[in-house]
Structure formats: C-alpha cells, structure tokens
C-alpha cells in the first residue's frame, strides 16, 4: 500500500478556467461545453490569493480554450503578480499580436501550445479542419516575440505516433520543447478511445521515442510506459502533489477523474485546504493498493501507473495501468512463444 503523508497543500493546481472552446478535438478531456456557473473575475482573484497563501507554486491553466475568457489576461497578470508560476495550455488558434505582447510582459509564464500532427492532414483529423495552419501561426507569433518557455504539446495517438520524430524536430526548430501527453478516455475522449488509443506496438514505439529523447517532456503519467528507461516522476501525483479545479470551482483529484464520486468539494464554498486534507476521494487516491503490481521489480518506478486509466478502462483505481510497458512486453514475449510453439508443433 502506498500511504505517503500528503503535502500540506498542492504543489501545482490544474485549473480548467473555462469550458468554452473554439475547437472540438477528438481526444479532449473536456467536452467543450460552457459551464453556466463559471467563476467570475473576483472569485478567480480570491482563489489565486488562496493559492498564494498556501504557497502553491504553479497554476496550470487549461480548459476549454483559456483565451476565450475575456478576462484571462487579467487573471494571468494577477497570478504572476502574486509570484505564482503560470502555465497556460492553449490551442494556439486565438493568439494574436495584442495577446502575445501582453503575455511577453508576464513572468514567470510557461506556454503550451497543442499540436497533434506534423502535417495538416494528421493534425486536422484530430483537432479540426484548418487548425494546423492557425496553430502554426500562433507558434510563429510566439517565436517572433522571443518566447522561449514554450512547449508544443502533443497528445500521443494512433494517428500521430509515427510523426513524433517530426514533431520533435519542429519543436527544436522553433527553439521550443516537445511535451507528450497520454490520451485517456475522459470527456470527449471516451467516445474516440477505440479508434484513437495506442495499441501495443505503438505504445512500445512511444517508449522507444521517449528513451531516445530525454529532453522531451512528459508532464503527466507516462512513467508506466517509460519504466526502466527513463528517470523522473515515479507515481501519480493526483491528490498527492496536485489537484484539478473546474470552471465553477469544483475540485477533483485530477482532470481525468471527474465522475461524481470523485468530486471533493468546491473551492468557493469549502476552501482548498479542507478539501485537500480531508476529502474522501483524495483519501481514496492516497490509499490505493495496486496489489497485482506489488511483486513487479519496477514497482518503485511507477507504483502501478495511472489510476484514472485503470478506472476508465477496468472500472477500478486499484487495477494496474492497462498500458504498462512491462506487461505489454511480457505479452509480446508470450505471443512470440506461442508463435514458436505453433511453428514447432508439426514436429
């Protein structure tokens, strides 16, 4: 059982600042619906002040598309003025000279621009027609403005797995980094899982890619896929290091666990710290037992992987990560063994 004492407060908070979006990406963890109870500016400021009081180091702003909020630049300005690092995940299509000029004056600020293919046909299949060109314009704008803390963020899918090297080259060409994100069947992604998720050989390709390129960031739980070949994060940070806040202030352990049973409270009414310390769903995440994994020699390097994926695909947080590389390689060995048996059976 993993039962580490929780930190006094989250290290980072992922804040889905709006549900509104101008794109309709196949894999999106949200469904692009506007939240009628989206926090207002004064509430957002109060939340930032609360996060500052608890010494939360970083806010990851996402959505929806954050820049569709008219007051988003003011929210960012307030965040950085309070000394909190802001990290913005944007689809890049609404960036313009005025926005980028304002962003340039903010620090500390990290930008993540989503791009899901190295060519229009791949990206647009996933993110919508014409989006590739607009994303590239956004990236060019950031480059011309001298932004350096920029990541091209790619959700790795069956459709783009063979373009990872090209995406890596593109990011380097801009002077940016590539950041890979795991696809999980949450939000709109539930409906597209069967057609877009990675199959065994593709998952192993991703493992090889991440092994070759140590400078590719993997902000979230890739560690079950890279176990044994890459150091760094070794367990899920949900409810231990981080949590997720919805546009209306609902708190969840992570953006991929937003079913009713995982709602831990609302920051506007309950306050973040009581939720962080006492919410039932957070306690549940902290006490997960991944018994099927406990005898694995790599257990200390992944602790069973992503609970959200196990929950979505297998119905339990305590099941092993279904995309665990060790299991996939064992399965492949098993298949090879079966194949050799079938070849030798005539003898």
């Amino acid at each position: 059982m993993i039962d580490l004492s929780p930190l006094r407060a989250p290290v980072t908070v992922t804040w889905q600042i709006t549900g509104r979006c101008n794109l309709s990406c196949r894999h999106c963890l949200s469904d692009g619906a506007a939240d009628p109870e989206e926090m207002g500016f004064e509430e957002a400021k109060a939340l930032i002040e609360e996060l500052q009081r608890h010494r939360v180091f970083q806010i990851n702003f996402g959505g929806g598309e954050p820049f569709l909020r008219e007051d988003f630049l003011d929210i960012l300005e307030y965040t950085t003025r309070k000394g909190i690092v802001a990290c913005v995940s944007t689809n890049g299509t609404v960036l313009n000279e005025r926005i980028v000029k304002t962003l340039k004056a903010l620090s500390p600020l990290y930008m993540q621009v989503s791009l899901d293919g190295a060519c229009p046909s791949t990206n647009d299949l996933i993110r919508g027609k014409g989006s590739f060109e607009r994303i590239i314009e956004g990236l060019e704008l950031l480059r011309r403005s001298g932004f350096v803390k920029v990541a091209i963020n790619t959700v790795v899918l069956r459709q783009n797995v063979d373009e990872l090297e090209a995406l890596y080259g593109m990011a380097r060409g801009y002077g940016f980094i590539l950041r890979c994100t795991r696809f999980r069947p949450s939000g709109r992604g539930r409906g597209s899982w069967s057609g877009y998720s990675l199959r065994r050989e593709e998952l192993l390709k991703v493992r090889g890619f991440l092994q070759r390129h140590d400078d590719v960031r993997t902000g979230d739980s890739f560690f079950p896929i890279t176990v044994g070949v890459r150091k760094g994060l070794n367990m899920c940070g949900a409810a231990r290091m981080t949590c997720s806040i919805s546009p209306s202030g609902s708190v969840y352990p992570c953006p991929f666990l937003t079913d009713k049973e995982f709602k831990a409270g609302n920051v506007l009414t309950d306050g973040l710290l009581p939720i962080w310390r006492h919410a039932r769903s957070f306690e549940m995440l902290r006490k997960i037992e991944r018994s099927p994994c406990s005898s694995c020699p790599f257990f200390a390097q992944c602790h069973g992987g992503c609970p959200a994926l196990a929950y979505s695909l297998l119905g339990s947080l305590e099941e092993p990560d279904p995309e665990c590389a060790m299991r996939l390689m064992e399965e492949r060995k098993g298949l090879l063994w079966e194949a050799s048996l079938s070849i030798s059976s005539p003898l």
Binding site: S5, R8, A9, R55, F57, G83, V85
Partner: peptide, 8 residues
C-alpha cells in the same frame, strides 16, 4: 526559487 515548509 520558491520554498515552503512541509512536515518532512
């Protein structure tokens, strides 16, 4: 650098 106190 940011820093805060924790139980550990």
């Amino acid at each position: 650098i940011r820093v805060r106190e924790e139980d550990f």
